[in-house]
Write a protein that binds this DNA or RNA. Structure first.
Lengths: 236, 236
DNA sequence: TCCATAGTTAATCAAACGATAAATAACTTG
DNA sequence: CAAGTTATTTATCGTTTGATTAACTATGGA
């Protein structure tokens, strides 16, 4: 096994030492880091990352002063600008049925974030206790769940939240809808289970099931506020 | 700062070197390891674990030949015997309403597994790619979701799975119910968000919403099999 | 053709980390 | 209480890992 010429590294042709502009190289490192950390978690080693990128470890430190700063950059890249402004208006557009709106929203939403990198990095961040999750889920609550609850009030013929503030119980019902959807991503990218191949049809059925049941649940939850409310408890 | 007597360790009185029976010590180590790994993940260091246990690091290696074997033991302890046999029969007990059964099941189920250790270790295992998750979720699918789908068929007045096999789409609907529930655990123990304080009431509402909507969804999904089926598409 | 600089090679440091061997002290037994 | 067993500690080894440095190489724009 003793070769006359010492084996040079081995990866990526030695001559292929392409010289990228700093901007290109930085992007390449960040993209590679996203994929790498999504796979192995943030304890992944800089040497291994460099190897996968086909560059040397010291070069990483030419672009990022520390591993932590690189991780910070990964967070930024993955989570920023992931909530599309159009979604805000979509949810509250009463010219369309709530079923239509929610179906379209979740089709776009799942397409936007149901991918290996997003789901896993978000979970790693949560387990690590980074504040990013709470911030992001705060957006989900305010821009999605709260509006959905408002629409459900309307659908159920109940007073608007401006008259009777939303309760935690209502928000929890909306969280349940959202959680059922997101759990698909977890099943797929963390538990390695199969998920619906007809995603659009599935979303349609889930939203349909929810919207068929939720208004009645809400009326039960606000017996005194329901339209033509039975004064006390009404049997099924 | 130079003390005459070298400071001895610092934790748990040096003289407190209690000598436990091997069984006691082993249990103490396993319990501590569960809590420790649930918090920091399996990359947590044996020195830190020992410190928290108030013992020295080499002692760990008297009870477990390697860190991996300790982790293996943690898996065993956390996941074994977590599916209670009574649940199997509860789900299919047609002397009670499906609403009752599912409500009781999820009350017991969440009480059994919605805790810091279970939720986090299960997630860490999933991210690490251990086979344990697939095995456990296989049980969930066969012992919970499939039976639930069978009961939904009955409820919707559709043929039993023995006549018309369950479709993936139906199972996905059941996964959605389950996922919505489990997402509560994730929100609480991984994302550090608040969850319903009235858990029983919440479960009741979620199950109610689901059962109110699912039968109709199923009938839509099997238009030709539905009782008094409208031959083609029926408008809402 | 020149030369600024992207990138490599190689070596190394200090701290962290899994694991081991030898020494020590707590408990048991006769 | 003496003797033996073994739970636990002390000290340490070998490796990994984030981070740094110095010297060298070669790409590609002016």
């Amino acid at each position: 096994m003793k070769a006359g010429t010492e084996q040079t590294g081995d990866n990526t042709d030695h001559q292929g030492r392409r010289r990228l502009t700093p901007a290109e190289r930085e992007k390449q490192i960040v993209d590679g880091a996203i994929r790498f950390f999504a796979e192995v978690g943030f304890e992944g080693q800089t040497r291994e990352l460099a190897k996968r990128l086909g560059i040397t470890q010291p070069l990483l430190y030419r672009y990022f002063p520390s591993k932590d700063s690189l991780i910070e950059r990964v967070y930024l890249e993955v989570f920023v600008k992931r909530w599309q402004p159009g979604w805000d208006v979509l949810i509250v557009d009463r010219s369309r049925s709530l079923h239509d709106r929610l179906t379209q929203f979740y089709r776009e939403y799942t397409r936007a974030i149901f991918n290996y990198e997003w789901v896993r990095i978000f979970m790693f961040a949560g387990l690590k206790g980074v504040n990013i999750n709470e911030r992001y889920l705060g957006i989900v609550r305010e821009k999605l769940l709260r509006p959905v609850c408002t629409e459900l009030r309307e659908m159920a013929g109940l007073p608007s939240p401006e008259v009777v503030p939303l309760t935690e119980e209502e928000l929890e019902l909306a969280w349940d809808l959202h959680g059922g959807m997101y759990y698909m991503g977890i099943r797929q990218w963390i538990y390695h289970l199969s998920v619906p191949d007809d995603l659009d049809g599935h979303i349609d059925r889930v939203v349909g099931t929810f919207l068929r049941g939720a208004p009645e649940t809400l009326r039960e939850h606000f017996p005194s506020l329901a339209p033509n409310a039975p004064s006390s408890s009404g049997a099924n």
